[in-house]
C-alpha cells in the first residue's frame, strides 16, 4: 500500500511552481536491520509530472535520494484551475499517481 503524495501547485506570473512531498522508504539496499541482515533495496526510480496530458518533468532517480523525498520544480504554460499530475514508480514495480489543481 502506498500513501498519498502531497502536491501543491501555485501560479506566479506565467510560471507554475510545483512542490511534491512523497511518502516512500527509499531503501538503498546497503542498510542492515537490527539482526544484521541487509534490507533489500527499494527506491523510486522514475518520477513523471504532466499537465494537460503533456509531460512537464521526467526524472530518473537512484538510491541517493532521501527518504520521504521532497521535489520542487517550475514550468511554464500552466493556468489556474488546470491539474498537475505526478506519478512515481519504484524498483518493486509499485507506483502511485496523485494530482493537484493549480492555484
Amino acid at each position: 500500500m502506498t500513501d498519498p503524495m502531497r502536491i501543491r501547485a501555485s501560479l506566479t506570473g506565467d510560471t507554475v511552481e510545483v512542490k511534491v512531498l512523497m511518502s516512500h522508504p527509499m531503501e538503498t539496499g546497503l542498510r542492515k536491520d537490527a539482526s544484521g541482515k541487509l534490507v533489500p533495496a527499494r527506491y523510486i526510480k522514475n518520477v513523471k509530472a504532466s499537465c494537460k496530458g503533456k509531460d512537464v518533468l521526467t526524472a530518473d532517480w537512484g538510491p541517493a535520494v532521501s527518504k520521504n523525498p521532497f521535489l520542487a520544480f517550475r514550468f511554464k504554460g500552466g493556468a489556474a484551475g488546470e491539474k498537475v499530475t505526478v506519478t512515481w514508480t519504484d524498483t518493486a514495480g509499485e507506483s502511485r499517481t496523485d494530482e493537484a489543481e493549480i492555484r
Binding site: R6, K19, L21, F70
Partner: peptide, 14 residues
C-alpha cells in the same frame, strides 16, 4: 529550504 513543507505532513494526514 523546505519552507512550509515538512515531511511531517504525511504523518499529520495519516
Amino acid at each position: 529550504m523546505f519552507g512550509d513543507d515538512n515531511p511531517a505532513v504525511l504523518w499529520t494526514l495519516r
